[in-house]
Design a protein around this nucleic acid. Structure first.
Length: 273
DNA sequence: CAGTACGCCTGGATGC
DNA sequence: TGCATCCAGGCGTACT
């Protein structure tokens, strides 16, 4: 599941490979994967344009093209954006192929939740899904004080709060569970019940797990692959996610597996308070 | 603001 | 072996 570290890894991989190229042809194999911009059709608008830069905001990739156009890409659960230096037959779930002046990019998504959305570059930060995102957790504006301020009015449990993209951007189910374990905080705790020291620990834990996730080129639990089709390795460092019923790496207690906000949550009832 | 449910999807795991 | 059912879950939207 591409969360911040996975999307950042894709951003870096694509940036190294496609910034000097131009889109020569667009092949849409499943129209549901793309969204036009106010009467400007996806294919016709981007054909012929070169790439200028690739940014990331939360779990969104912002691919900036020439001519004032951008593509906002979201992988959701199973999306992939993979660069091939040679021409390659699309796979079963490849929905869009961008033929470039050198190589090609395939957008594939088994579950068809992901989207490529055409927007004006000047409007990219104003589209609702991007505009409402909370701070970037690895940026300077994301301080312990900022996190505390944002948690204070929230009565929901801290796990659900971390998954709320308007509170802080980019954290998904994997890194939320890992950050809470590292900060030794129970996921059921109301967000506004965290003491100052706990918020500071959580802030540090969030930054650590995300940075380590990026360093490991992401978590390839099921479907995730980077921009070249390689798997990440952070799944080897997971302490709680997907380990329900297994012993805690710290105290050997059996890890609990519950549902919070409709999502599977794993934690250690002995280590986390 | 909280919470819940639903829709979007397929494949792998599980149950019979 | 084959078929039915469950589960994984990010996010937008609707409704209470």
């Amino acid at each position: 599941m591409p969360e911040l570290p996975e999307v950042e890894t894709i951003r870096r991989g694509l940036s190294e490979r496609i910034l000097q190229t131009r889109i020569e042809k667009v092949i849409i194999r499943w129209p549901g994967a793309v969204e036009d911009w106010e009467g400007h059709p996806f294919t016709e608008t981007i054909t012929g344009l070169g790439f200028e830069s690739i940014e990331r905001r939360g779990k969104y990739l912002l691919i900036n093209l020439e001519g004032g156009w951008s593509i906002i890409a979201h992988m959701r659960m199973t999306g992939r954006l993979i660069y091939h230096s040679q021409e390659r037959e699309p796979e079963k779930h490849t929905h869009v192929v961008l033929k470039l002046s050198q190589g090609e990019v395939h957008f594939s998504d088994t579950r068809k939740f992901g989207r490529l959305q055409l927007v004006k570059t000047g409007e990219r930060m104003n589209v609702p899904s991007i505009a409402k995102l909370g701070p970037e957790p690895l940026s300077e504006e994301f301080t312990p004080e900022e996190l505390a301020k944002r948690l204070k009015p929230r009565k929901i449990n801290i796990k659900a709060a971390l998954l709320d993209q308007t509170l802080v951007a980019g954290i998904g189910n994997i890194y939320a569970d890992e950050a809470l374990f590292r900060a030794r905080i129970l996921p059921e705790r109301p967000a506004n019940s965290l003491k100052k020291e706990e918020v500071e620990k959580l802030h540090e834990a969030i930054q650590e797990v995300l940075a380590e996730g990026i360093a490991a080129k992401g978590t390839s639990f099921r479907d995730y692959q980077d921009a070249t089709g390689e798997k990440g390795s952070f799944q080897k460092q997971l302490k709680v996610y997907s380990r329900g019923g297994e012993p805690c790496t710290c105290c050997n207690e059996t890890l609990e597996r519950i549902k919070l906000g409709g999502r599977t949550t794993v934690y250690c009832s002995k280590c986390q308070k």
